[in-house]
Design a protein around this nucleic acid. Sequence first.
RNA 1: CGGGGUGUAGCGCAGUCUGGUAGCGCACCUGCUUUGGGAGCAGGGGGUCGGAGGUUCGAAUCCUCUCGCCCCGACCA
Length: 570
Amino acid sequence: MRWSRFFINTLREVPADAEVVSQRLMMRAGMIRKVAAGIYTYLPLGLRSIQKMEAIVRDEMNRAGASELLMPSIQPAELWMESGRWQKYGKELLRIKDRHDRDFVFGPTHEEVITDTVRDAINSYRQLPINLYQIQTKFRDEVRPRFGLMRGREFIMKDAYSFHTTRESLDETYDVMRDAYSRIFHRCSLDHVPVEADTGNIGGSASHEFMVLAQSGEDAVVSCPNCRYGANVEKATSKFFDDEVEPAPSEVLAELHTPGTQSIDDVGAFLNKPTSQLIKTLVFDTDLGPVMVLVRGDRAGNEIKIKNHLGAQWMEMLSDTRFEETTGGPIGYCGPVGTKCARVLADHSLRGRKRWIVGGNRKDMHYDFAVPGRDFPEPEFGDFTTAIEGDPCVRCGTPLEIYRGIEVGHIFKLGTKYSEAMQCTFLDESGQRQPMVMGCYGLGIGRTVASAIEQSHDDDGIIWPMPIAPFEVVVTSVGKDEAVLRTATEVYEKLKTEGIDVLFDDRDERPGVKFKDADLIGFPLRIAVGAKSLANGQIEWSFRKDRAKQLGAPDEVLARVVEAVRAGLS
RNA sequence: CGGGGUGUAGCGCAGUCUGGUAGCGCACCUGCUUUGGGAGCAGGGGGUCGGAGGUUCGAAUCCUCUCGCCCCGACCA
């Protein structure tokens, strides 16, 4: 491809709303263009990277034994009512009506359609297991889209769904898919880690997320440097720590006058105690009624863990306006003694605690020496806080590390949630009708490409991993000298013949402009043909990542570049 | 959904307070010079100032309504 005939529009100035590196560079390099909030055009350069990513994913999915199909992006509401998600999914689900006023959705995911497809086509255990995937545009009406392709509303996703007769069969496919995911990210040279995850809206039993490690990641993951335990902090458990437990110097519940101490830090400062010695009380409104959660004063409650423990459909922090009537005490002085909440939970870090300093449910008042079971109902203990750096690993006790990551893939063992709701069944060997056991496997195509940029760039632009670079090589002609143009053209043609993805920068531009553009777009390899070195029969080549220039005769450079591309692809 | 901002040329911005011929930089076009890391000079094209209504002799500017977008928070694969 010749640059002069290709559609590339690089920007010298940074669009004002670009927040993260990948978004800024993709916009500047002319890969994407924003059309509306969270909705982008993939310009030719960007599309090439997207398509290369898709090709890698297809290759690995096919290798893993999955069959590609393509489902509609517009789906009838009936299917979503059948699964129950028409009610449950919320505003993120884009609902639309057709001319007959019938309800449809623009698919954010495809469990319903695939389950509908499979239940019609498959009736016998002989036809199972089966694994189907598609690469397709989804729409999720995110509250706040941001970060370009990393959190768009419209995005391209690979989603696969597997159907089985048994959980063991699902486990096998799950492992095969997990390996396929690792291969995919490995092929893109992405520094990634699979972690245990919460199943969220999709549901199911086990689930892993694939995280690309990057500063700009929206998720935090814990990782054990010793045993490789990894988990999203939403989910991560750590051993409970039974640290410096103070004995209670009194056996009698005592009132503590604590004027003007709204926050846990205020109380700690007033009593001259570290907040870890205090107990923080959180109150949530849920569909099961108000729930009180007690955690160590220096820890943050983890709403996902709490919600999962309760089995609640919805849950949110109790609003200020309803606080007093619900708990019987003012905000800032809430505590379990005399509470109106039906259920009281406590984080397992409090299990061995002897001295409980808690809110008094009255303004400017706390209690000291409170005893669970005596002064307030014995709480339900469990893991209700978010793990932090240095917590002991749940498996081996080693201090955990915390990283930021971008969730590029998420795989789930769904079990029979959808197959039961939608009667997707098969007849087993004994003629018994059983629900199929399902798995589902998502992978964000655009997000993966963006995360590659987050991991690999410098001040001047993108540094593409070879397999997803829009072009593998750029040939830059320097100057209008006839011999230069002739040699550059020959080099370009020969690379094409070798099957290399090469862009020939044949524009009538100054060298500086061409080099800056090449660095910005980030072609892994560059060949520059200029009059000075050509006078000695030499041309120049360099890698984008270190820019170290090497000279050689054209045929020699060609051979080296072809070799470097092949090495970069394998 | 709550709070805060912002909308002026393809991109980045000034002008709005104090109403009076719509500006600057980048990009684009023409010419000359220049040519190994985003050139210089000269000339040029491009705007119903987000939209609707109002006040006024006169509105980018003041008033009312509306829409889009951005940031923070809450929420969420």
